[in-house]
Write a protein that binds this DNA or RNA. Structure first.
Lengths: 138, 138
DNA sequence: TTTCTAACTTGTAATGATTACAAACTAATA
DNA sequence: TATTAGTTTGTAATCATTACAAGTTAGAAA
């Protein structure tokens, strides 16, 4: 599924989030860099192009976008929060060697359990860890 | 499934981890408090009984136990690492209101995807968030 | 277009979890 | 019981994230 910046802007308007220069740049970065970047990577990636950008703004923006369900937070590792512009139903695999995070398709809704009867589930995440084929063959 | 301290000690020996007083106390705490405590909660919970205990030791111990696969790390929230003595195949549900983490049974291995052919998977986590029945009815 | 204001941005300082380090201590073996 | 590698401890350092207050701006309204 392709992510289109125009659709995201539409969503921002719906959520009453102002289309500031900084926010558009962060969004654009996330669309162009779907490698699950950290806040720091986003900040560094945009710093040349938007020299006035502050790290606080990056965090603020990411929090706003998360609340509006435009980005998804990935907590696969305890010391780094990552952000994903792809909010469709999918899991994340992190290679312990090269540290890369791979998306994989799964139908999370097919995971069924009696244990959660009566629970309202709003957010589902599936995280796998291991070694990717590139690193296995190296 | 019941967790028995003796079995854990056996595992420690197998992994060449010395049975120090502090480690035994941390392990005991995890067995008695299967509420997925944070390092801080473990430290505070043991402080009266083991006044010399330092927070560094708690972290060191948790890291050793994790490496030996005796405890499982839960990264359901970005600002808090939690620890689970129950290493059996199960998922975690966090209530956004009361903050409690519930275990739920699922067969994680039944989650199938073609996308991970060639990947070696060593660790699988399923995290759900939402509202638990207690909070829904309140 | 201009004005207005709530919302946004910025830099600095604070917070809080986790780790680094080096000296003191101890489990377990011989 | 002596030895020593592994462990513990307290303090200081690190690093990601947030708080805050002053300056700036998007976007509505005149």
């Amino acid at each position: 599924m392709k992510i289109i910046l125009e659709d995201l802007l539409e969503e921002l308007k719906k959520n009453n989030i102002r289309l500031s220069h900084q926010r558009l740049k962060v969004l654009e970065f996330l669309v162009l860099n779907q490698c699950h970047p950290t806040a720091d990577q986003i900040y560094n990636g945009l710093h040349k192009e938007v020299p006035t950008l502050s790290k606080t703004t990056v965090y603020n923006t990411l929090n706003s976008l998360t609340e509006a369900n435009l980005v998804r937070v990935i907590n696969i590792e305890d010391n780094e929060t990552r952000y994903d512009i792809n909010t469709f139903n999918h899991g994340h695999f992190k290679c312990q060697q090269c540290k890369e995070i791979y998306d994989f398709g799964i139908d999370i809704d097919s995971i069924y359990t009696d244990d959660l009867n009566g629970f309202k589930t709003t957010d589902k995440n599936v995280y796998f860890k291991g070694v990717c084929p590139k690193c296995s063959n190296a």
